[in-house]
Write a protein that binds this DNA or RNA. Structure first.
Lengths: 204, 204
DNA sequence: AGCCAAACGGAACCCCGGTCCCGTCACGGG
DNA sequence: CCCGTGACGGGACCGGGGTTCCGTTTGGCT
């Protein structure tokens, strides 16, 4: 970081852009540092020195995403807020660039601890942004006081990711709608009571 | 398939076993046909001729899993049935061999249409086995008549997969319990009304 | 028991991603 | 405006995965 401006920054941008393009064209298995260097018009040695592994490049990509977080909805109604969230998640997963990047990151995170941490930070940030939708609903008296806000937010995303990853189907607007309303209904029924603290371990 | 017994079968078993072992040791990125041949004590040429790609080997692995499907629960109570299902899903994902295999398959399916089809068949079969838990509840009058049974079953799995894949956390028993009760509560509230038929497209 | 098609296995070959070495270039301070 | 440090880039080398060819083995079938 001693020379953040100028050529170094250009190289970084070129490589990250090339990585995004290659991800769409070839998918994660087609990514290799030599190919990235070619695409980026950059010396092969440079890529190996600065990143060293494909996972590190992806980790760098997701770092950028953490900083650009869209604002949450604030409609004053839980259903509408969660519908907005579900719509955002659906748009992200459906978008060719963002969707491919996220699925690639999920796959990479399975085998690389660094990527897993970066991805987790990203999702934690995203979740934190939307949590107020739930805590506001609690404050309004629409939900039980001991509702686990983060869990509700994650419950909106889960079915959409599940559909994409296990069924190979792009989630549609109807799917997003159902995901939001299911989470809201369960929350009102008190099914998200109390945070879970025991019984979870991090993956090897 | 003209010679299903004898040497051919032994080779197939050896390679599939080697693939399972390698998946645990090295993860999906570490799999390559040459390495599988070495591990299996089999000619490299044979592996390339019979399968040709890593994805094809995984597809073959999942085909075996489709046939061995555990029986569904039938307790006469929706909550208990879904709790049993959630427990099964949790056990599967937590089990080193099964869990790694499933995550690897999901990753492979992202970039390979054949693997995606095989994986989809697997999940469709699993879902079909557990659907009666929901339809029985409908028949008992515990759920609305237009409840989408398959969606409810999938809703139980979704949060557990989501937690494993996006947060790198093994789902615990408390997570499984919550997943089941959330799905049940939402179903009772009528949030799973009517099958979704529009707005979904298969991935490229 | 013997035949033959089909599958297996060894070995050489090619290709290319990963590594190393060293010369060159540009940013930023003095 | 110049100088030094640190990053970039080219090129050669190495290892191993993927492909091909051909000889060998096997197991079903008559």
């Amino acid at each position: 970081m001693s020379r953040p401006g100028g050529r170094t920054a250009r190289v970084r941008a070129a490589v990250l852009a090339a990585a995004g393009d290659a991800l769409i064209e070839l998918g994660l298995p087609g990514l290799d540092l030599a190919g990235l260097a070619r695409r980026a018009g950059v010396g092969k040695t440079t890529v190996y020195r600065r990143w060293g592994t494909v996972a590190a490049v992806l980790e760098d990509l997701v770092s950028d995403m953490v900083e650009t977080s869209a604002p949450r909805a604030d409609t004053g109604d839980l259903d509408d807020d969660l519908l907005a969230n579900a719509g955002l998640v659906r748009s992200t997963l459906t978008d060719p660039r963002q969707g491919r990047l996220l699925t690639a990151l999920i796959c990479a995170a399975v085998d690389d601890a660094g990527t897993a941490r970066a991805l987790r930070r990203f999702y934690d940030a995203r979740t934190a942004v939307w949590e107020p939708c739930v805590t506001d609903a609690v404050a309004r008296g629409d939900l039980p006081a001991d509702t686990d806000a983060a869990a509700v937010v994650r419950a909106v995303s889960a079915p959409l990711y599940h559909q994409l990853l296990t069924r190979g189907e792009q989630p549609g607007v109807a799917d997003a709608r159902r995901a939001a309303l299911v989470a809201a209904a369960a929350a009102r029924a008190g099914a998200f009571a109390a945070p879970v603290s025991a019984g979870a371990r991090r993956t090897s």
